[in-house]
Every structure is written in structure tokens, then in C-alpha cells.
């Protein structure tokens, strides 16, 4: 993986470790970590803090037969559902994302949403949404502001906005203060994973109308 410049923020890493983020954000975080050794190392620290918070909390009495009941569970063959392990070798879709989509980039069920852009909305819990976006090189996403937090992780290609350039592995964290017009770089399609916990605020009338249909 080429050098990643834009990483996850501290609150995102801590929220992911604590298990308090919406599922849609977890997808972006897990996918970025699959591509980024720095954030993987940072996450190990946040997990370790979680472990120490847990062991330092006042112990609560367990049921009298708790150990026996647990051993009975083990004897019955209780198993936490293991995910099937899929290899992402040779794919630009890291494994946590493969658990949500069926196939590789060109075989996905893309839906055109106007301006040459296609999307695929992933099935997650309703507190936030996450979608794959496919933006042809040179194409702009209509300028917009944000009502909440928007995470955009680049999987292929690159886009540029008022903040910086974002290449493969980079994640942009946008919030209420940011208004931007992402433009895909010339060349290969820019494919990114974008999560939002609130609708975007489009300026133009056409994207505002389209918004009702595409659900961004």
C-alpha cells in the first residue's frame, strides 16, 4: 500500500475500540485499518485502554451457578458465530468490506445517481449510512456541506477538494464546518467508501431534488 497521509481521528479510533460508533462508521474504520499499519497499531492501544478500563471497574457478583452454566455452554458446543474468512488478495476491496458486498468492483450492482457517478448502498444499521461511490476521472461531486460527520475512504484513484488530495487509503473526515466539492482525479475511476450520520447539504437545486431519490 502506498503511503497514507490522511488517517482516522482519535475519537473515531476510540469509538471503534469502545464499540460506540454506528455500524456504517465501523465499516469505514475497519476497512481503513485493513489498509493502514499506523492506525492498526493505534487501535491496539485503544483496545488495551478498554481492557484496563474493564478490569479496573468494580466487579459485579455473578450468579452462583455461573461457572457451571458456562462450562455447560462449552460442553454443548456453544460457538460465537465465526465469520467466513475471505481472502482479499488481488482485490481493492479489503475483507471487512467484502463481508458487505457481493463480488468485485466490476461485478457489483452499481446504480447510477447522475453526473456519471454510481453508488452502492451497503446494508447496515439505520443510525448512519455507508455507500460505495464510483466517480469517473475528472468528474465532480456536487458541492455540499454536512449536517453531521462524513467519512470518505478512497479505495482506488484519488479525489481533490478544498482541503487536500486524497489517494488510495486516505480518509477524509468532514463535519459541519466543512463545505467542499470533491473532484475525481483524471485517470482511473475514483472508488471510495463514504459514510454519513446525517444528510448532506447540497447547494444546487438539481442535486437537492436528486437527493430525495438517492438518499445521500
Amino acid at each position: 500500500m502506498s503511503k497514507i497521509k490522511h488517517h482516522l481521528t482519535e475519537p473515531l479510533l476510540m469509538g471503534y475500540a469502545a464499540g460506540t460508533l454506528p455500524e456504517a462508521f465501523n465499516v469505514v474504520v475497519a476497512t481503513h485499518i485493513s489498509m493502514c499499519d499506523d492506525c492498526r497499531a493505534a487501535l491496539a492501544e485503544y483496545d488495551a485502554i478498554g481492557g484496563e478500563v474493564m478490569v479496573s471497574s468494580d466487579p459485579v457478583e455473578v450468579a452462583e451457578a455461573s461457572l457451571a452454566a458456562t462450562l455447560a455452554l462449552i460442553d454443548q458446543g456453544f460457538a460465537d458465530q465465526d465469520r467466513p474468512v475471505r481472502k482479499s488478495v488481488g482485490s481493492i476491496i479489503p475483507q471487512p468490506l467484502q463481508d458487505y458486498v457481493d463480488g468485485d468492483i466490476d461485478s457489483l450492482k452499481w446504480r447510477k445517481i447522475g453526473g456519471g457517478v454510481s453508488q452502492l448502498v451497503l446494508d447496515t444499521s439505520a443510525d448512519a449510512t455507508v455507500r460505495l461511490l464510483r466517480i469517473p476521472g475528472g468528474t465532480a461531486v456536487p458541492d455540499h456541506g454536512h449536517n453531521g460527520t462524513e467519512l470518505t475512504l478512497v479505495l482506488q484513484g484519488a479525489f481533490v477538494d478544498e482541503q487536500d488530495r486524497f489517494g488510495a487509503g486516505d480518509v477524509e473526515v468532514a463535519n459541519e464546518e466543512l463545505h467542499h466539492t470533491p473532484v475525481a482525479e483524471q485517470g482511473a475511476d475514483c472508488i471510495c467508501l463514504a459514510a454519513t450520520d446525517a444528510p448532506l447539504r447540497f447547494n444546487g437545486i438539481v442535486p437537492r431534488i436528486a437527493q430525495r431519490f438517492i438518499g445521500i
Partner: peptide, 11 residues
């Protein structure tokens, strides 16, 4: 929370 938990790819 009745949610799935996406985990990073194992190294």
C-alpha cells in the same frame, strides 16, 4: 445493539 461488527483484515 443488534449490529454486525466489521473487523479489520487479519495480518
Amino acid at each position: 445493539r443488534k449490529q454486525r461488527r466489521p473487523e479489520p483484515e487479519e495480518l
